[in-house]
Design a protein around this nucleic acid. Structure first.
Length: 1054
RNA sequence: GGACAAUUAGCUCAGUUGGCUAGAGCGCCCGCCUGACUCGCGGGAGGUCACUGGUUCGAAUCCAGUAUUGUCCACCA
């Protein structure tokens, strides 16, 4: 082992070792030691992003959770994936392509193609960076929000919500982002304080052109869209004006003056202009008074061509128009504009494009959160809002830290209908079609039954011959007949589609005949051409599939994927059938069809083949599939869905929903913990809870753990766009992943900001090195043959006992999610206890078992520390000669047998004495190399002295030798009931000594006063825990003793 | 305007249901190559736990209020 631990030399190799061992591939709960599952859905990073500290914080906490649970014996699954990040990606790709106006410069299909290209490239960057963090993720289950399975899930829940009457299309006031060219949800609008102006305009009366009403506005450009002026009905100033007509400045259109209690008498002039088309509040007032909405600003942010906008302003941007209408050199302006005041107000901005939001009236799709419906699974009347609130209220979902409950409730209570349509191209296109009369057509749910052919001759021989066709055996034929019988009874098969190969086709024919249904052959359904494989070709530990791929001389993986896609596309185009469609195919290729639908990346097909999708001869599996409506004049809605719509399905869509027979969904849903930053509690967490309860009737997870935001040195949110972040990869490069991980978790508490400086990371790099050197030293200790795990010396006993305590409290801490605390507990144990005292003591105080005991302590430490610093611990474990991976080693359990309070106290006493001597030596400036004589007396020490080792240990650590004769000259002190006398002939500075004693006395007297007042208080003695009172008495006695002796000592120098 | 947090050593922060003389890391001072570790070892200095009241035998911790900082939500032209 090298002298120093160099993270870079080991991390990649260790990661590879884990991957090769499939260490993080989830096992089934029934195969786990605890029988329980532990599941975390990874909050999917945006595909186009790169790793920042926010990701790092998330990955560290989640990895600690997962590694702990995996070692504790739970079937642990960490489901990874990425998010298509609709607006963000579209913006980036448009910029990359240099496109200003996508409608003119490209086509939808072409652009989406570019997005896919970009996405695929960016995907590798972010996922590799996640790997760098040491995240123990099950990559075989990786998903993407736009993959086939998740897109299917999106369409399904849209369909179901629509059927339940919870999705509607309607014209409403929405937030329009001119920059992103799309509508935004309320949450996607960020409000910022802006130094604006308040403009005062005169609206002259139609019948009394000399008089006017004065209105204050921040947005003069909207005045063309005014359809009324409003005053408060209680406002005496304007009583006579109500009902009269006024003229809009610049446009000469007349509008009425109305009265509405919404108007604030005290603000501005007390007179408000109403623009229902461009202000949410005005929109509401407009609806109330049945006022017309006159849009005057277009989706491009420019003044519209409209009968209400005078020609000279048409085509100006909002800002230009405002300038023109307030240009005080303009004669026209002078007529209307009275004054301009500076005014600070908040303006909504797009959270992606950072342009000012334009409120607009537009037709969009919404989710109705308040509408009562009968829940199809829960069979009770409820609303989406109620479901979302109750999950937390009833405790089905626990939020950590708890204070976020309040925030959550407040948000849900104020929740308005969620606008889910977006006018961008990259995303899930709204699964709705319109005919010429604007009637809405939804996809229909088609039940598909997939069956594998009956037993073939090659099946019977246990060989795989995909090249040569192999007919059905007699058994195969009867299997087919049986299946036909079963289908006739239970299903309504109206169409059979079969592979062209004989074994499948014959199976299909038998069934078709029985059911009297037409049989269609699809060439694409044939089996993989992989040559011939017999048992001889098999390699232990490899699945048939893997072996096939290795031996394969025919169709490549990509080919299979492409063919499977074609099959699904063909299914999409099937004409409506009033019943079920039966597919007869082959074991291998059918699983690929399923895998593709489940969104599994082809390279991982083999990992699942034997487990998740395997089919026996004549076995069937059903699923419903959404098929787009057919018709010449049908056209699909142009809009796409809000990114958060698909994110809201994440915990269950990634596990196979809506396919309820999916093994992963059955084994791993609901998930356990959702860990994320508290900034997306609303965006994401609440919506997941809402959708999960709607779709599955269950909460998606039982615990929400919110980490704090990672902030920069100014306390500002770190973000890519601000470019103010520390690059986690640079930290990893410099100090190692383990160091970064420790730095991001120790000293943090959930929900509170995580501050990170380079110095902190460096500190934990040093820690990794310390662990390394502790191991190096312990490895160098000789374990004699016949050594037993039986503590003999004080140090043996102390260490073994301490270790049990550590195991106990670390485990408890992890169970309570006290990750930061456990981290520092382990740090302190390793450095301050094991290294500084344990190892040092062992150098003098050892038995034939000491080395073994230290090795055991190290092992426990490595196990406990592994979730925090996986790399260095795994590396040391390996160097220790352990065969199994540390990451798969069972979590340690404390053994009561080794716990000894006495041993710990004895050791602590010696520690105190040693520290006192060191302190005295340092004060007296005695060179560390000089051994001085020390004389000890006291009860405690007499006990310890019975063991000769302890004497050696004490002497060694404080660098003294035992003096036996009464000393002539020296200093003395008292600690742990022991008098220490250091022989210092000829070097005593009496004055200094006197001062030292006086200082000591002062401290002691302060303490005694404190203790005394406590004990003389009757209620303290009565109310405080007895243990505490006893301890106080003991301390008081000891301190008084000390004082007595120090006073005597002082007399010497008086 | 409302909600939530934070305020502890020069800096960055811990401190679990109130209970030993309030802790850590970094920095600072003094001294050391003591059988693994200078990414190290030993010894120190440094704090009226933001402020004001209250509850309690006892408060950094609980309650009320004040101040400063930060975050979120709502938003009046």
């Amino acid at each position: 082992m090298d002298k120093a631990y160099e993270a870079k030399q080991h991390e990649d190799r260790i990661a590879e070792k884990w991957e090769k061992a499939k260490a993080f591939q989830a096992i089934r709960p029934q195969d786990s030691r605890s029988g329980e599952s532990f599941v975390i859905p990874l909050p999917p990073p945006n595909v186009t992003g790169t790793l920042h500290l926010g990701h790092a914080a998330m990955l560290v906490v989640e990895d600690i959770m997962c590694r702990y649970h995996r070692m504790a014996g739970d079937a642990t699954l960490w489901v990874p994936g990425t998010d298509h990040a609709a607006i963000a990606t579209e913006t980036v790709v448009l910029k990359h392509l240099g496109i200003k106006d996508r409608n003119k410069e490209t086509t939808r299909d072409k652009f989406i193609g570019e997005c896919w290209k970009w996405t695929k490239k960016a995907h590798d960057t972010i996922t590799n960076q996640i790997r760098k963090m040491g995240a123990s993720i099950d990559w075989t289950r990786e998903r993407f929000t736009m993959d086939m399975g998740l897109s299917g899930a999106v369409n399904t829940i849209f369909h179901d919500l629509y059927e339940a009457g919870l999705i509607y299309r309607g014209g409403r006031m929405i937030n329009w982002s001119v920059g992103a060219q799309s509508v935004l949800a309320d949450d996607e609008v960020e409000y910022k304080e802006v130094n604006g102006k308040l403009y005062y305009y005169q609206y002259f009366f139609k019948d009394d052109p000399k008089n006017s009403l004065v209105v204050a506005t921040t947005r003069p450009e909207t005045l063309f869209g005014d359809t009324a002026l409003a005053v408060n009905p209680k406002d005496k100033r304007y009583k006579s004006a109500v009902g009269k007509k006024v003229i809009i400045p610049f446009s000469n259109k007349e509008i009425p003056v109305i009265a509405d209690p919404y108007v604030d008498l005290k603000f501005g002039t007390g007179c408000l202009k109403i623009t229902p088309s461009h202000d949410p509040n005005d929109y509401e007032i407009g609806r109330k008074h049945k006022l017309e909405a006159r849009p005057v600003i277009g989706f491009d942010g420019k003044m519209k061509k409209s009968p209400y906008v005078p020609k000279e302003y048409e085509g100006l941007t909002r800002e230009e128009c405002r300038k023109r209408l307030s240009d005080e050199n303009d004669a026209k302006v002078k007529k209307y504009l009275l004054k301009i005041e500076p005014y600070v107000h908040s303006v909504g901005f797009c959270y992606r494009s950072h342009t000012a939001i334009e409120p607009m009236v537009s037709t969009q799709w919404f989710i109705d959160v308040n509408k009562a419906f009968v829940h199809p699974i829960l069979k009770k009347k409820t609303t989406l809002k109620k479901l979302t609130v109750d999950a937390v209220k009833k405790g089905d979902v626990k939020i950590i830290p708890g204070r976020f409950n309040k925030t959550y409730f407040q948000w849900v209570d104020n929740l308005r209908d969620w606008c889910i349509s977006r006018q961008i191209w990259w995303g899930h296109r709204i699964p709705v079609w319109y005919d010429k009369k604007e009637n809405i057509h939804l996809p229909r749910k088609q039940n598909l039954i997939f069956a594998r052919h009956g037993e073939s001759e090659s099946n019977a021989k246990m060989v795989i011959t995909s090249r040569n066709d192999s007919p059905l055996t007699d058994l195969g034929k009867s299997q087919a007949a049986e299946l036909a019988e079963k289908l006739k009874k239970e299903k309504k098969v109206k169409m059979i589609i079969s592979s062209p190969l004989a074994r499948a086709k014959s199976t299909g024919e038998i069934i078709a005949k029985k059911l009297g249904v037409k049989l269609v052959v699809w060439d694409e359904l044939l089996e993989i051409d992989c040559g011939d494989i017999t048992e001889k070709d098999m390699i232990p530990g490899r699945s048939v599939f893997e072996r096939m791929l290795e031996k394969n001389t025919g169709e490549a993986l990509e080919g299979m994927e492409k063919r499977a896609k074609t099959v699904w596309e063909k299914i999409e185009k099937l004409d409506p059938v009033d019943g079920d469609i039966l597919f007869i195919g082959h074991g291998m290729f059918t699983s690929i069809l399923f895998a593709l639908r489940d969104g599994v990346h082809p390279e991982h097909y083999s990992s699942f083949r034997d487990d998740r999708w395997r089919m026996k001869n004549a076995e069937t599996r059903e699923m419903t599939h959404l098929i787009a409506p057919k018709g010449k004049d049908l056209r699909q809605d142009e809009d796409t869905l809000d990114t958060w719509f698909s994110s809201a399905l994440w915990p269950f869509s990634t596990l196979g929903w809506p396919d309820a027979v999916n093994q992963d969904f059955r084994d791993f849903f609901p998930t356990s913990i959702l860990e994320t930053g508290h900034d997306i509690l609303f965006f994401w967490v609440a919506r997941m809870i809402m959708f999960s309860l709607f779709a599955t009737g269950k909460s998606p997870f039982h615990t929400v753990y919110l980490h704090g935001l990672v902030c920069d040195e100014k306390g500002q949110k770190m973000s890519k766009s601000k470019g103010n972040g520390i690059d986690p990869l640079a930290m990893i490069d410099k100090f190692g992943t383990d160091a970064l991980r420790m730095a991001m978790i120790v000293g943090t508490t959930p929900g509170n900001p995580i501050n990170l400086g380079e110095k902190k990371v460096e500190g934990y790099r040093n820690f990794a090195n310390k662990i390394w050197n502790i191991a190096r030293y312990i490895f160098s200790m000789n374990i004699p043959a016949g050594a037993k795990l039986e503590p003999k010396t004080h140090t043996d006993k102390w260490l073994l006992s301490k270790t049990q305590h550590l195991i106990r409290s670390a485990t408890e801490g992890l169970r309570k999610h006290h990750y930061g605390e456990v981290g520092s507990m382990l740090y302190k144990f390793a450095w301050s206890e094991l290294a500084d005292w344990g190892i040092e003591a062992s150098k003098a105080d050892s038995s034939e078992n000491t080395a073994l005991i230290f090795r055991e302590a190290l092992k426990s430490l490595l196990m406990l520390l592994h979730p925090y610093t996986p790399f260095v611990t795994e590396k040391i474990w390996e160097s220790m000669g352990e065969k199994d991976l540390l990451t798969l080693t069972p979590w340690p359990k404390p053994d009561k047998k080794w716990e000894s309070k006495e041993a710990e106290q004895d050791f602590e006493s010696v520690k105190a004495i040693v520290m006192k001597i060191r302190s005295l030596r340092s004060e007296k400036k005695i060179e560390p190399s000089v051994k001085i004589e020390a004389v000890f007396s006291g009860k405690k020490l007499d006990v310890l002295r019975e063991n000769e080792n302890i004497v050696k240990f004490l002497a060694s650590l404080s660098s003294v030798v035992y003096g036996k004769k009464p000393p002539r000259d020296g200093i003395s002190d008292y600690v742990s009931g022991t008098e220490i006398f250091l022989v210092l002939e000829g070097v005593i500075d009496e004055e200094a000594e006197k001062m030292r004693i006086e200082r000591e006395l002062e401290n002691l007297e302060k303490l005694i006063r404190n203790l005394d007042s406590r004990l003389s208080n009757e209620s303290y003695v009565k109310n405080a825990p007895p243990r505490l009172v006893e301890e106080t008495r003991r301390q008081l006695q000891e301190s008084s003793e000390k004082v007595k002796r120090l006073k005597e000592e002082k007399k010497k120098y008086a």
